[in-house]
């Protein structure tokens, strides 16, 4: 009796132990795959930075020197002084800052309207807004260009900024509306009793409690605008108006096309262009993940 019970217990322990080892083995394999995959994804970065610090004659040697010898820091000032990259950076910062501000202000106001105020046709209009997410942007491209041309805004940053003040994009409105809906309604009632108007509720109750969600919208908008290529390509004709994206593309034309390309300069300029979004990502990672969870849960 006692022996059979203890042997049964031993058997159970053996099975559990087996499962534990199986689990450990599985995790080790997963680690291995993820490490290899991460390294694979990091190679392009390493290669870019490595090339950007080489002398021209060294960039074609094989096997490659991952740590250049000698390290040629001058590539950076040389590459960045061929074109007014400082000017491009200022233009980009101006356009992105103005656009992000517009998006955050207008999308939060619209989302507040949809989430907290009752008005006839609200559900229908919200559906219309969701439907516009499916509309391919290219259908409106030409008339919008004609409109801005008629307004005399071509070759100014206005076409890249002003639309952000008109709702700030269906996706952002949707994201904020979901977030605002999760704030308890009692907050509004308390505010109303204290004499808040509807706009007071927006500004004093909803906005202060939604700093995270607004940060998410700001970051996603930053990324979209920073990388935007077609917009600046269409609207900015003057070199002095260029953003980094179109400036870098123009620089590539100077650094060579198919024949001889001065990759060390091209990679130096590319590296500098990649730094702002990477910095923002590293410092604001938490918001990225949160943003995806909010839209993931409720979407």
């Amino acid at each position: 009796m006692a022996t059979s019970a203890s042997s049964r217990a031993a058997g159970v322990r053996r099975i559990l132990l087996g499962m534990k080892w199986q689990r450990r083995l599985g995790h080790a394999l997963a680690h291995l795959v993820l490490i290899c995959f991460s390294i694979l994804l990091m190679i392009p970065f390493a290669w870019t930075i490595s090339t950007s610090l080489k002398e021209y004659k060294d960039i074609f040697t094989w096997p490659p020197e991952w740590i250049p010898n000698p390290i040629r820091w001058q590539n950076y000032p040389e590459a960045l002084s061929v074109l007014p990259f400082g000017r491009f950076a200022v233009n980009t910062a101006y356009i992105v800052a103005a656009g992000v501000l517009g998006t955050v202000l207008s999308s939060s106001l619209v989302a507040f309207g949809f989430a907290r105020l009752r008005f006839p046709g609200r559900e229908l209009l919200f559906l219309v807004m969701l439907a516009t997410m499916m509309l391919p942007g290219v259908v409106t491209l030409i008339p919008v260009f004609v409109l801005f041309r008629y307004l005399g805004w071509v070759n100014t940053p206005l076409p890249l900024i002003v639309p952000h003040y008109f709702g700030g994009g269906a996706f952002n409105i949707f994201l904020l509306r979901q977030y605002f809906s999760s704030i308890p309604l009692e907050m509004d009632d308390a505010g109303r009793i204290d004499g808040c108007s509807n706009f007071g509720l927006y500004w004093r109750i909803i906005v202060p409690q939604s700093a995270n969600a607004l940060a998410i919208v700001a970051i996603f908008t930053f990324m979209g605008m920073y990388h935007d290529f077609m917009g600046p390509l269409l609207y900015l004709k003057d070199l002095n108006q260029y953003t980094l994206a179109v400036g870098l593309n123009f620089f590539r034309g100077l650094a060579g096309t198919w024949g001889q390309t001065y990759y060390h300069w091209l990679m130096a300029a590319s590296t500098v262009t990649m730094i702002p979004p990477l910095l923002i990502f590293f410092f604001a990672q938490r918001y990225f993940i949160q943003g995806i969870v909010i839209t993931g849960i409720k979407g």
Partner: peptide, 27 residues
């Protein structure tokens, strides 16, 4: 509340007409 609601969504509504629906028809 209804009036304020429309005021709140008016930027989007205007944008919808000027930058989306209008151009959609014009194109």
């Amino acid at each position: 509340e209804a009036i304020d609601g429309f005021i709140c969504i008016s930027p989007w509504l205007l944008g919808l007409l000027v930058f989306t629906l209008g151009p959609f028809v014009v194109s």
